[in-house]
Write a protein that binds this DNA or RNA. Structure first.
Length: 596
RNA sequence: GCGCCUGUAGCUCAGACGGAUAGAGCAACUGCCUUCUAAGCAGUGGGUCAGGGGUUCGAAUCCCUUCAGGCGCGCCA
């Protein structure tokens, strides 16, 4: 058995290796503190709780009554303009070809069947054939009531339907501290996992440790060299060695811990021990950095070295050989990836008899597949994009469908300083660690900035700009809205205004209030779309919009006033806004402070 | 040379499976704190969606092409 992390929470490779998700029990689900898991089973019995689902159901009925069967996917969107109603559907236009009728005529037929439904204030046909729905106030208020009562369960769509997803992210080599690029992968991966877990998927989070290759050996050799120098034994520093300050620190720590034990001893003899000692400490460091960053919930840390030790690499290649996808050429063993999606075949065993890095990756991905996940997501730096076809080929070679596999490429972060690119190199020792950035900018801000961009868009992270404008950072804007509401609710409580039974929400008559309620009710759609597209950044944009609407409302209307009944109604609205704000921030992995 | 990503307001970026008059923040300028948090609010200006062609009722979105930037193309990891 191999201990992966030297920590009170031990992750044993043995456990990962031999425990299939099935054995963990059908109810296994990751839940984070403060956000208990939703019971989707229960939710199905509720009615009138989602604008989108209600409209979809009614449209489906209408289309079936018009002889459309089976009913296709119905698109529902939140229109750009308020004058286009609360929800809109282009379904009449998309059906035009199939039905061989004019879009507006189809729309009229549909509307004819819906217009008497009491949940709609009005239904209009607009433009080339949009059907625009406007809800009645009573419908909106009863939905708000549901939101207040059901809270989190109200906000969820069961996108995943219990499907098992494995997300592998960060997976930085344990050769030094994490930097800004890893941080982006961590922020995106963490938010995505939260999002999927909250959307009805069963999510496992995994970190793959490349502890078997040359890089880790170089790490050990670097520390070895510095250590020898500290003991007065001048050995040349390895040409490709790691040169950061942390290497010196590790060498000092090694000397403090082990004294002169290794002085003058050749690397051939003590190298394995020093390397193992060093990279274990690097893993602890990485874990600590991730923890400071608020990303701590990996379910498994998978060791490449252990995959070798368990014979999985040899087995995987043997399996491919039996399937006829391995051949020998020029003293090396090749995987015939061109049989699938790759543009050239790939070496798995070099002519010197060593496995390539790709070989252990084959074994690792086979291992993932064999564990029975419905979907496997890898989050990689964009510089690894050329790797996708060969891994997809591996999937297919083992007989799996590549639609089960999804790589999310996280684009490079250009670290800037004074508007100039700041080149980082771990080996040259010129890099800004994640830890530095957390000290400088803060974990919340850093995460939020990463999550205001699509994963595949390039991103300039200017240390000057980010620190100088931190007071105007959008994350504070959103958190401030939450803190303000909290302050109002606290004030109300101190004045003895406890939320009474039978709050009359109908007193919320201001147009700003109805617009806010509608915005709250679109939140489940935002989550659903974000989960379906694996794009957590959509939540970030929604949050900014909702916060802006609240700040405006706050400025124009007093919540706590003379009229007790109105006060209660407005306090309820504020509570609902706070539920959504803190829920969304929680999914993004950003804190929702009560005071600021 | 081939492949992947990107190109939208002065800057940083959104823009949903092709949908209605292309949006937000920052920066700039002008107002608003004796009232629940001014890390806030209100207002003003700002666009050939890199260029060109195509597909159709409709294109920032799909296809082709040119240009620009980034990344990748090893018996490295």
């Amino acid at each position: 058995m191999f201990v992966i992390i030297h920590n009170t929470r031990l992750y044993l490779f043995h456990y990962i290796w031999h425990t299939s998700p099935k054995q963990r029990g059908p109810h296994y689900r990751i839940s984070r503190p403060g956000l208990p898991a939703v019971d989707f089973q229960k939710k199905r019995h509720l009615h009138c709780i989602s604008m989108k689902r209600d409209v979809t159901a009614l449209l489906t009925d209408a289309l079936e009554a018009l002889g459309v069967s089976p009913c296709p996917h119905i698109e529902i969107e939140v229109p750009r303009e308020d004058s286009f109603g609360d929800l809109s559907s282009p379904v009449a236009m998309t059906m035009a070809k199939a039905l061989k009728k004019a879009p507006r005529k189809i729309a009229e037929d549909i509307v004819g069947r819906l217009k008497d439904n009491p949940i709609f204030e009005k239904i209009e046909i607009a433009g080339p054939g949009f059907i625009n729905f406007t809800f009645t106030k009573s419908y909106l208020l009863s939905s708000l009531q549901h939101l207040l009562k059901a809270e989190k369960a109200f906000l969820r769509e069961n996108v995943g339907e219990g499907k098992k997803v494995l997300v592998e992210f960060v997976s930085a080599n344990p050769t030094g501290p994490l930097h800004i690029g890893h941080a982006r992968g961590a922020a995106v991966g963490n938010a995505l996992c939260n999002l999927l877990a909250e959307s009805g998927f069963t999510v496992d989070r995994e970190y793959y440790i490349n502890d078997a290759g040359r890089q880790v050996r170089l790490l050990g050799l670097s520390v070895y060299a510095r250590y020898q120098q500290l003991t007065g034994n001048e050995v040349p520093f390895p040409e490709d060695g790691y040169r950061g300050q942390y290497i010196d620190d590790e060498a000092s720590a090694l000397r403090a811990e082990r004294g002169e034990t290794y002085k003058g001893i050749s690397f051939d003899i003590c190298g394995t021990e020093i390397t193992s000692w060093t990279y274990s400490r690097m893993l602890v460091l990485i874990r600590k950095d991730l923890s400071r960053f608020g990303v701590t919930e990996f379910d498994a840390w998978i060791s490449e070295k252990e995959i070798f030790a368990q014979g999985e690499v040899a087995n995987a290649i043997e399996t491919l050989q039996q399937k006829g996808f391995i051949y020998q050429h020029a003293n090396a063993l090749w995987f015939r990836s061109t049989a699938f999606r790759d543009d050239k075949d790939r070496v798995v065993i070099k002519s010197d008899g060593e496995y390539t890095y790709f070989a252990s990756d084959i074994a690792y991905h086979k291992n993932k597949l064999d564990r029975g996940y419905d979907t496997i997501i890898d989050i990689w730096g964009a510089d690894h994009h050329g790797y996708i076809p060969r891994i997809e080929s591996v999937m297919q070679a083992f007989g799996y469908d590549i639609s089960q596999f999804r790589v999310i490429l996280v684009q490079m972060v250009n670290l800037m300083k004074h508007g100039e690119p700041f080149q980082m190199s771990k080996r040259a020792g010129t890099f800004v660690t994640l830890s530095d950035i957390i000290d400088l900018v803060g974990a919340d801000t850093t995460k939020f900035i990463f999550l205001t961009r699509k994963a595949d868009s390039h991103l300039d992270f200017d240390l000057d700009v980010v620190t100088a404008t931190s007071a105007e950072n959008p994350v504070f804007y959103v958190q401030y809205a939450n803190a303000r509401i909290n302050s109002i609710l606290t004030n109300a409580r101190e004045k003895g205004l406890e939320p009474a039974q039978g709050v009359d929400l109908a007193l919320l008559a201001e147009s700003a209030e109805l617009v806010l309620i509608k915005k709250l009710l679109t939140y489940p759609m935002v989550l659903e779309n974000a989960a379906r597209s694996f794009e957590p950044h959509r939540i970030t944009f929604y949050l900014q919009e909702l916060a802006a609407m609240f700040h405006t409302y706050y400025h124009n209307h007093r919540v706590i006033g003379e009229d007790a009944a109105l006060t209660h109604a407005r306090l309820s609205l504020c509570s609902a806004i706070r539920i959504v704000l803190s829920d969304a921030l929680g999914i993004l992995g950003v804190s929702a402070p009560e005071k600021m």
